[in-house]
Write a protein that binds this DNA or RNA. Sequence first.
RNA 1: GCCGGGGUAGCUCAGUGGCAGAGCAACCGCCUUGUAAGCGGUAGGUCGUGGGUUCAAUCCCCACCCUCGGCUCCA
Length: 655
Amino acid sequence: MTKAASTITVRLPDESTCELAPGSTGLDLASSIGRRLAQAAVATVIDGVESDLNLPLPDGASVAIVTADSDAGRHVLRHSTAHVLAQAVVQLFVGAKFSIGPAIEDGFYYDFELPGGKTFSDDDLVAIQGQMQKIVDADQPFVRAEMTAKEALQLFKDQPYKCEIIERVTKGDADPTDSLEAGSADAVSVYRNSEAFVDLCRGPHVPSTGRLGHFALMKVAGAYWRGNEKGPMLQRIYGTAWESKSALAEHLHRLEEAEKRDHRRLAVEMDLLSFPQELGGGLAVWHPKGAIVRKLIEDYSRERHQNGGYKFVFTPHLANAHLFETSGHLQFYKDGMYPPMEMDNGVYFPKPMNCPMHCLIYRDRQRSYRELPLRLFELGTVYRYERAGTLHGLLRIRGFTQDDSHIFCTEQQMADEITSLLDFVLSVLRRFGFTEFDFKLSTRNAEKSLGSDAIWQKATDALTEALNRHGFQYSVSPGDAAFYGPKIDIDVRDALGRKWQLSTIQCDFNLPERFGLEYIASDNSRTRPIMLHRALFGSIERFFGVLLEHYGGAFPTWLAPVQVRVLAVASAHESYAAQVVDQLTKSGYRVDQLVADEQLGKRIRASKLERIPYVLVVGDDDLKNSTVGVNPRGGEVRRDVGLAKFIDQLAADVG
RNA sequence: GCCGGGGUAGCUCAGUGGCAGAGCAACCGCCUUGUAAGCGGUAGGUCGUGGGUUCAAUCCCCACCCUCGGCUCCA
């Protein structure tokens, strides 16, 4: 017997090798390395391909063990749990059709169609989760099999959605989701985890359902089949699944924390703004405390733009339909615009964007190349008809204000301008405590775009060059550009690590064309400028909502609606407290006083719940010595602080 | 727009085909307070809006508005 026949050799990720008996599986390999690894293993990667743990390893393969506590491992857990969900539903609901059930961030979902268009209730979820637990307890093995498409169609003859996927894969017009579900056209793969249930799936899966168990069904929602609005609406069940009980508990805790930071909840609690029903959906009114924060944000934006070489403009909220015909908005976005108003001299629309009006300002007189780049800036309020089901607090709203700028420049100036814009954007965002940014370059969609290849290439190159000059990592979204030009979108990460898209920088050579914009170049020729659209906050309303969630309502001192609250220990100290308020107010701070009707502890609690950065307590000692007791948000109480010293500290904090 | 929840006091929520409930907040007293809830009392609601069923509707039915979770969409 040769050596090759008696053992096989596989290579591990650390470049070491391991000898195993022929026919050994990934699980055997994991066991040979250690018991804990074997327990944590959920799949293998064999020569770069994710595979089942019970697949025999080929001699000479590079093998990695995927453990449950890795991203890839959790993905496998979640995908397998989705199968268990489908099995539970099929067992509990006779005649249920199941369609797709992928792993997603933090969990999984599965889409179903119930007979007679029935829907799942919350009680159903409880029952389904119970049934899933039984399947897990039964420790059913996941058994992979491959078959021809014809065999698969026969196997799933009662499952129309599965048949559609198989047919798509067979015809070669599968999208990535289909491939995930079914494997390839040559060999359709299925996983059977009991007599009762078999599902189309590429895999891999955990060896058996007993490996699962730390999951929870979260919610049920409608979802269109294949995301097609005109297609049937299925019932989607969302769940979450983790490698351990504690990981699941942590996830649920994170959700609770995020809920506490919900900007809609904080806006009510902190009396910042509201959405009165009488006003209509997606329209907000700003209360004094919210308005002061918004004003501070806008003031800061204006100051930065003033110093950044921008010229301020103002434009009206309405415009004649002709303007939006010229700009192309009526052609491309009529459905997203508020309906027209008939007036004696024409038809008017609320504006969905500011750019057409800025173009009119540019075109009002002849421009020279010496004026470029010309940067027009406006906090411009626009109205967009967002469909009712899409409204979401401040984040998706029908009337909002853009910190909007249009920069008219030459082709040659484009790259420099975008480069300095990136600096400007990040510098402004950093002031609000954002330190992590993700960049996305969206490129041309051949079907939905205007303009020559050459100009698109130039614009895309300019954006890419600007990103590269900064050395920023970025992702590319092919085909996601606006119809008029490519763009860079910037996401920020908030204090909980969540991503929010805020800023956008877009190249546009369509509007200059449509409006016939020109400048006189140095060679005396009439030349078309390039237009850059850019917004930093995007929408002030949305940015405010993101900030609220980012800070959890605890605005930094420079933005806090009330920066300092003064509390007298007893009535005898109220007039001294008033003096302190007076002095701080004269120093330019937002200060108030809560008189001593209630006990001190209760007033402190109330002030803390309002997230006021500094609570000052003054009593006998302070009155005598012109001092204050300082109770800072999230810090230690200090007694007997001189008022002048406190003002210095406040100044330093506000920066 | 589509699917499924929901709308009761300022807030968070309970409740019933037959007089509308709690806690917190508010207001009024008492307490005069030294760092996160002192005590007592009072007031507060067209039960989202409009129709319908019923002797009687906050409750059941229909429509609409608003809202929540998703889907779709997002210049």
